[in-house]
């Protein structure tokens, strides 16, 4: 049986193989770092909702304040999604017969809640509290992005532990006067100088914790 010999031209592959071998770990490393990051796997979630409700219309064009609907956001850990009654404050009259509001009307008549799909879902072992942030002047926009421009809500933030800590360790540039929390277009980094932001932080004595027990209780 004759021995198999690589043809001479295969020598040209040798540097290529070495090059690939050198690049491969880098490639795999970057693939894992970017591909498996919560920013890829968790942020950007945009489920289809049962009713084509648009924040861009209500919070953007009509200028409604977030708290008109998410009433508990300043008082409770939970920012409740509004009851059907809230929609019917206006929609008993406005777009009264719109097919898009069919489910809202039937929910109102039967008392069965509308099954909105939850967009933000923190891991159950982590504790989060809206009022602790909103009352202290962390704007909705810091965590939820420009909701007032979204036709369908999607998740802007990865909601990973690293993301929480990034702000808890350095909140200065991400806090605003508490009266401005629902102003989505307002940007403290444009409207206030660095010195003013530091003063605001000292004035309100804002020092978020990064102890494990703050969020894992």
């Amino acid at each position: 049986m004759s021995r198999f010999l690589f043809p001479r031209w295969s020598n040209a592959f040798l540097p290529l193989v070495i090059l690939l071998g050198a690049i491969a770990p880098l490639y795999v490393g970057l693939f894992v770092a970017y591909g498996f990051s919560p920013k890829t796997l968790e942020a950007g979630y945009m489920p289809t909702q049962p009713v084509p409700y648009s924040h861009a219309v209500h919070a953007g064009k009509l200028g409604m304040d977030c708290r008109y609907c998410h009433t508990s956001v300043e008082k409770a850990s939970f920012a409740a999604v509004p009851a059907t009654q809230t929609c019917m404050n206006c929609h008993t009259q406005i777009h009264r017969e719109s097919p898009k509001l069919e489910k809202v009307r039937s929910s109102y008549e039967t008392g069965m809640p509308i099954e909105w799909v939850k967009v933000h879902k923190l891991a159950d072992y982590a504790y989060f509290n809206h009022s602790a942030h909103v009352v202290r002047g962390v704007g909705c926009v810091e965590c939820h992005g420009r909701i007032d421009q979204m036709t369908v809500v999607y998740r802007v933030a990865p909601l990973s532990m690293g993301w929480c800590l990034e702000c808890h360790r350095n909140p200065t540039d991400r806090i605003r006067p508490p009266s401005m929390v629902t102003q989505m277009a307002w940007d403290q980094n444009k409207e206030m100088t660095q010195a003013q932001r530091v003063e605001l932080q000292n004035l309100n004595n804002i020092h978020p914790n990064d102890n494990c027990s703050t969020c894992h209780r």
């Binding site: 945009m46 879902k121 159950d124 369908v152």
Partner: peptide
């Protein structure tokens, strides 16, 4: 995936006790 909102996410790889 990173640049466009997507209805198939989120994918939570390490489940641990994340969703009880």
């Amino acid at each position: 995936v990173r640049s466009t909102p997507n209805s198939n996410l989120p994918i939570h790889i390490i489940q641990d006790m994340a969703f009880q």
